Amino acid sequence: MLENKEKTVSVYAEANPNPESMKFVMNISLLPDGQSVDYANLESAVESPLAQELFNFDYVSRVFIASNFVTVTKSAGIEWVKLIPELRTFLKSYVEAGGPIFNQGFEVSKPATGGEAHGEASEGDAAISKKVIDLLENYVRPAVEQDGGNISFKSYKDGVVTVHLQGSCSGCPSATVTLKAGIENLLKRMVPEVTEVVADGVTV
């Protein structure tokens, strides 16, 4: 796993469509491009000392770590203007001091591919799944990542694509609109066999 040896780290906050989440972008690599991890609570963050430290702030309810940013989701009722300086200072100091992002030997699970996701899936379903995965990876995921989140393919069956949304997308008021008006329309247009897109793990 990547370690950060740089002495000077810049951190800036970037808003996203989820009002309860904030994306903290850094000038260093936390994970290889395309990889990410999502922690819904302290108990799930056992392999990330950085995430555990962030959960020590009593207003932090979710931590998402990607290539060069950390998305923090807060509890409702507290204004970001009061929290951003504290979190920026913490992240900058922690990384500059060489604090570990992940435990030694930790590796991010590989995203599903058509074959892995289906096992007994028909050859036709596997081919459709591959088309969907390619579209998600090349067109959808970069845009979702810009907003501090991530999207991954979970399954395809009988015309229904199931995806998993992470980071700022989880609990975002506009997530279902984006899913239906954006992602579903794109996939239905590009892959005619797709009739619907649903999200696993989205809180609405």
Rank of each mutant, 00 (worst) to 15 (best):
T162H: 00
K130M: 05
A66W: 02
L42E: 14
V11L: 09
A66D: 07
V46G: 15
K180D: 02
V163S: 02
E43A: 14
T203I: 15
L187H: 00
A40Y: 10
L83G: 06
K188M: 11
E145Q: 15
S129W: 00
E3Y: 09
G34H: 00
V160D: 02
L87A: 02
K154A: 15
N185Y: 01
Y39D: 03
Y12L: 14
E86G: 08
G98C: 09
L31C: 10
M26N: 01
Q104F: 04
Y156D: 00
E43W: 11
N27S: 02
K23L: 06
V70P: 05
G34F: 02
K82I: 14
A15T: 12
A13Q: 12
V95F: 08
I28G: 03
V81H: 03
V95C: 07
S129V: 03
E43N: 15
E137A: 15
M1H: 11
N16Q: 06
S61L: 03
S174Y: 11
I84W: 04
V37M: 12
N4D: 03
S61M: 09
S168W: 07
V197D: 01
G119E: 13
F106W: 14
L187A: 03
V81Q: 07
E123N: 07
P17D: 05
L31W: 07
L187Y: 04
V132E: 08
G148F: 10
